[in-house]
């Protein structure tokens, strides 16, 4: 089962659409209230980063089923400026925009698996998974 759904992120309203999509899919997969909140919050962080730092990109959400282990994966893609120092942005409090700098480390804690790939001037791809327990 890999029916992926994507939302283009170009403005703040798209962030709300991406969250809505994530919430609906999480609900359908059987995630509870707390995990739904974690997933939508993670989507919100990733989508807002795309809007703020890359200008545009997309959020894709897919249900996963690996040998009966079910979950949901969020993929955030953009062709923005990329991230020079990945280690730094994963530290709590690191921000280049006067934010809290809590977004990316927060997403990592909200979800079960987290990976980030970024090339300067090429773009960023972040993927985060939550398993159904």
């Amino acid at each position: 089962m890999d029916i992926q759904s994507c939302v283009e992120v170009r403005n703040e309203w798209d962030i709300v659409s991406a969250r809505q999509l994530g919430r609906n899919m999480a609900k359908e997969l059987g995630f509870g209230n707390v995990d739904q909140a974690r997933i939508t919050t993670a989507i919100s962080e990733l989508a807002r980063n795309i809007y703020l730092y890359a200008g545009r990109g997309k959020i894709c959400i897919e249900p996963i089923d690996q040998l009966g282990k079910k979950g949901l994966r969020i993929i955030a893609l953009d062709n923005g400026p990329g991230i020079r120092e990945i280690r730094k942005v994963m530290e709590d409090g690191y921000t280049t925009s006067g934010g809290l700098g809590a977004g990316l480390p927060g997403v990592k804690r909200l979800m079960d698996e987290f990976s980030i790939e970024s090339t300067v001037d090429v773009g960023t791809e972040i993927s985060a998974t939550k398993w159904l327990r």
């Binding site: 969250r19 939508t40 809290l100």
Partner: peptide, 9 residues
């Protein structure tokens, strides 16, 4: 519905 870092900030 969602309190993310931006809302919290």
């Amino acid at each position: 519905p969602v309190v993310d870092t931006m809302v919290a900030h």
